[in-house]
């Protein structure tokens, strides 16, 4: 059996920035098979759909989920208490492919930053670029410092780190790295993909789409990709084929 829904015991629930929550959840059986860039599909009381949340970090016993309250479901979830058991299908999707012998640039934008932490842990001293709207939304800076000597922080309004976009930093660093991995808003991913294409660097991007089953059966989380016969365009599903795609596969 490849998929399972199991109970995870909540060991930590901390609001690390306004409306952004940091959960540590205990379940060794499923935590230990989790890979970078995969996601957890979390059941929420009184809601018909589960909430897909990217895995921020995992070890042999626990997974860490960092998510933003966006609506009623994530708000209910944010109120879970330490000791509660959450019903989670995990791990799901195809994540990032991180090789030890490559130099990576890892880029996260906003709530796309958390999954890059797991990548940073696996990669060999990567360049990490994190971007946020403003200082109130900055997260995980100390965590990244454990895995990289080169961490960049940018904000749209300059209230923390440098004022600007993640792509401003990427343009300066891209010649020093072998490959780029990114998660964040589509406009950001598109801009990153264009820079990588210009420089001939491979790029992996993690996408988001409104999701149903989470396993590839209901076909709602469609994304247009060049993965059909002879590179033709088709709709594939973020939950199963993704969430991580090669940038050149994505029709932005």
């Amino acid at each position: 059996m490849k998929y399972d829904a199991q109970l995870f015991r909540l060991e930590k629930n901390e609001e690390i920035a306004k409306g952004i929550f940091d959960f540590v959840l205990y379940n060794p059986q499923l935590a230990q098979i989790t890979k970078e860039g995969q996601f957890a599909h979390v059941k929420v009381d009184s809601k018909t759909l589960r909430r897909p949340i990217s895995i921020c970090d995992a070890d042999n016993e626990r997974i860490r989920l960092v998510f933003q309250v966006k609506g009623g479901g994530t708000e209910i979830l944010s109120k879970a208490k330490v000791g509660d058991e959450l019903d989670i299908i995990c791990p799901l999707g195809h994540g990032f492919d991180i090789k030890k012998d490559k130099k990576y640039c890892l880029i996260g934008g906003g709530i796309g930053v958390p999954p890059m932490l797991y990548c940073a842990k696996t990669a060999n001293n990567p360049v990490v670029i994190t971007g946020f709207r403003n200082k109130d939304l900055v997260i995980l800076q100390e965590d990244f410092k454990k895995y990289t000597d080169e961490l960049y922080l940018v904000t749209d309004d300059g209230t923390a780190g440098e004022k600007g976009f993640v792509t401003d930093i990427l343009k300066k660093k891209i010649d020093e790295v072998d490959e780029v991995c990114a998660c964040g808003p589509m406009v950001m991913l598109k801009a990153i993909a264009e820079i990588c294409k210009e420089k001939g660097k491979p790029c992996q991007v993690s996408l988001e789409e409104r999701m149903g089953c989470g396993i590839g059966a209901c076909l709602v989380c469609a994304c247009k990709t060049r993965t059909g016969e002879n590179g033709g365009e088709e709709y594939t599903h973020v939950c199963k084929k993704g969430p991580v795609y090669k940038a050149e596969e994505v029709v932005f």
């Binding site: 809601k47 018909t48 759909l49 479901g73 789409e209 409104r210 999701m211 149903g212 209901c218 076909l219 709602v220 989380c221 469609a222 994304c223 247009k224 709709y235």
Partner: peptide, 9 residues
């Protein structure tokens, strides 16, 4: 199939 989004709660 249709363009996304294809689902709403």
């Amino acid at each position: 199939g249709n363009p996304p989004p294809r689902i709403a709660e």
